[in-house]
Design a binder for these strands. Structure first.
Length: 182
DNA sequence: TACAAGATTGTCT
DNA sequence: GACAATCTTGTAG
C-alpha cells in the first residue's frame, strides 16, 4: 500500500486528521509549488446535508463517487475553486475539503498567482489559486499528479483542534473541521 | 424555462 | 462590517 493509500485507509474523520501535516504539491509548466496542509474539513456524503453528494450523483460531483485518492474540484459562488480529497470505497461519496496550508515551496510563484503577499493560502479558494488548481484538475490521481499529496513533514508538536465547520448553513454543529494549531 | 441558494473572497465604507 | 462578483444545481411551474 502506498503512503497515500495508508493515509486514506480510515473513516472520513480520521482521514481529515491524517491529512494535517501532509505535503500538497502541484507542478505546472515545470514550476513546483507546495504547501503543508494545516486545515481540513470532513464531508460524509449521503449522511451529510452540507455535502454536494448528499442528494446523489450529478455531473459535478461524479468524482466523489469514485475510488479514494482522487481530487474533486468544484466551483464556489461561480468564482473560486475548492479542492477535496475523495475518501471511501467507490460509490461512497465521502470527501475531505482542503481549507488551508502553509507555503513550503515555490513561494514566489504563489505570490505571483495570488497577486499579493499576505493571506496566501488561508482559505479554500485561496489555496486552489495559490497552487493553480482549477476545474481542469478535477479527477486528478493524487498519487501521479500534476496535483499530488505526499506524507509528512507532519505538524510537529502542534495540537490538532476540532471546531464546527465554516461557511455552510446545514449540519453546522458537527465538529468536523480540523486545524493544526499555530 | 425560470429562479433561489450556496463548502468564498476581495474591496469599499 | 456590508456587499458585489458569478455559475452550477435543485426545485417549481
Amino acid at each position: 500500500m502506498s503512503q497515500l493509500e495508508s493515509l486514506l485507509d480510515d473513516d472520513v474523520l480520521g482521514v481529515a486528521a491524517n491529512l494535517l501535516g501532509c505535503r500538497l504539491e502541484t507542478e505546472f509548466d515545470g514550476i513546483t509549488t507546495a504547501v503543508t496542509i494545516t486545515e481540513t474539513e470532513a464531508y460524509a456524503g449521503p449522511d451529510d446535508p452540507a455535502s454536494h453528494a448528499y442528494r446523489g450523483l450529478t455531473d459535478r460531483n461524479r468524482v466523489m463517487f469514485g475510488p479514494a485518492g482522487f481530487l474533486y474540484v468544484y466551483r464556489s459562488y461561480g468564482i473560486h475553486w475548492c479542492m477535496n480529497v475523495v475518501v471511501g470505497e467507490p460509490g461512497v461519496p465521502h470527501a475531505v475539503l482542503l481549507r488551508g496550508g502553509e507555503p513550503v515551496a515555490g513561494r514566489a510563484e504563489i505570490i505571483r498567482r495570488r497577486g499579493r503577499d499576505t493571506d496566501l493560502t488561508n482559505g479554500p479558494g485561496k489555496l486552489s489559486q495559490a497552487l493553480a488548481v482549477t476545474g481542469d484538475d478535477n479527477g486528478t490521481d493524487l498519487r501521479l499528479g500534476p496535483v499530488r499529496i505526499v506524507a509528512g513533514p507532519g505538524i510537529g508538536d502542534r495540537t490538532v483542534e476540532r471546531t464546527p465547520r465554516i461557511g455552510i448553513s446545514k449540519a453546522v454543529e458537527r465538529p468536523w473541521r480540523f486545524i493544526a494549531a499555530g
